[in-house]
Design a protein around this nucleic acid. Structure first.
Length: 214
DNA sequence: ACAACGATACCCT
DNA sequence: GGGTATCGTTGTT
């Protein structure tokens, strides 16, 4: 059985839409004190592009709060919103200002610690949403700007057997919670997975929501 | 200084 | 399905 492989710069330094879709099924890993691992399979992502994407934090240019979005591909961009945090992975060459928002995980390792971090034992409220998964993995603004390709406590792995088998299909939809560019189909999620965000609330994991993209 | 806003989540009905 | 807590960031006086 092949060992998991940490994703490197060449994975992230590609067209943002390709990176976003390829991140589905990869494993986000957080290693905390004592070498304990918190991990989950990426179930839902959104792309935030450069240039014409009016919903992207890069749209109004580089500033103090979004500076890491303009660093090299593979950098973590963590930003605060509504007194919570969301995490992104920077894509494309340095200076472009594009990233992928990770919106949901299927928890696989360290679930007891995630329950403790979240203050709930309900599995479908542990990592089903961008701010929830940050809290579960103990990710906050101090993680902003970290290099995922080398950092010792935060990275993304590919499990070769899982990726080769690819036992899922992907659906797309418009992005959630934005007020600009609301119709662009830049959200992707694993079809039917119970950890898609809002699954219990608005049934957005159902097969009649979004559209099939393979 | 201060006010408004947000790529959210929670609690209530 | 709707109201709102909460706070860092930004834009405005």
């Amino acid at each position: 059985m092949p060992e998991p492989i940490r994703l490197g710069q060449s994975f992230y330094d590609r067209e943002t839409i390709s990176v976003a879709r390829d991140l589905l099924g990869k494993v986000l890993v957080r290693q905390v004190a004592g070498g304990r691992r918190l991990a989950g399979v990426i179930i839902e992502v959104e792309a935030y592009l450069a240039n014409d994407d009016r919903a992207s934090h890069s749209h109004r240019g580089r500033g103090a709060s979004n500076a890491s979005m303009f660093l090299p591909a593979g950098t973590f961009y963590v930003y605060p919103i509504h007194a919570k945090y969301c995490l992104n992975v920077v894509t494309e060459p340095q200076g472009i200002g594009a990233a992928v928002l990770i919106r949901a995980l299927q928890p696989t390792e360290g679930i007891a610690m995630m329950i403790d971090n979240r203050g709930t034992h309900l599995l479908n409220r542990l990592t089903t949403g961008p701010a929830r998964l940050c809290q579960a993995l103990d990710v906050d603004r101090s993680c902003d700007g970290l290099d995922l390709t080398t950092n010792a406590s935060l990275w993304i792995e590919s499990e070769p057997d899982l990726v080769a088998a690819r036992p899922w299909s992907v659906r797309a939809s418009s992005r959630i919670g934005i007020s600009q560019a609301v119709d662009l189909p830049l959200r992707w999620f694993i079809d039917g997975n119970r950890y898609v965000s809002g699954c219990a609330r608005d049934h957005s994991c159902r097969r009649d929501w979004g559209f099939e993209v393979g």
